[in-house]
């Protein structure tokens, strides 16, 4: 492996770590406007089936900033991608990329109108 490649890899790892810890501002590939709107629609309509269209909870817990604000972006995005075994929360990995899940997690922490 060349030094250059190593550096890129390290930078990538660092970005992933920071993404996990902070706000998702360093995302590698933030979804474009059309996709963002699709993701918000998915959140309201389909996540909303259990969490409520306004995300205030239902059979599944509330996803409002008061309810999940203390969770890290990584915890939220991993939960979105892989679900929660033993609960009805299914994995949403077939429908979005990791970057998209990270973006969505950031939006949830910030609060969605």
């Amino acid at each position: 492996m060349t030094n250059m490649k190593k550096q890129i890899l390290q930078a990538g790892l660092l970005a992933t770590l920071i993404n996990g810890m902070a706000s998702g501002a360093l995302m590698a590939a933030p979804p474009d406007a059309a996709r963002r709107s699709e993701l918000i629609d998915l959140l309201k309509q389909d996540c909303g089936a259990c969490h409520g269209m306004r995300l205030k909870g239902g059979l599944g817990p509330a996803l409002t900033p008061d309810a999940i604000g203390r969770l890290s972006i990584e915890t939220i995005s991993e939960t979105i991608l892989h679900g929660r075994p033993g609960t009805p929360m299914p994995p949403w990995q077939p429908f979005m990329s990791r970057d998209e899940a990270v973006w969505l997690a950031g939006r949830l922490k910030a609060g969605v109108d």
Binding site: D46, A49, C50, L59, G83, P88, P90, P91
Partner: peptide
């Protein structure tokens, strides 16, 4: 016994 022992698919809406 319906579905017993079979792998369940994810449920995206109850």
């Amino acid at each position: 016994h319906y579905g017993r022992g079979e792998r369940k698919l994810p449920v995206y809406k109850m």
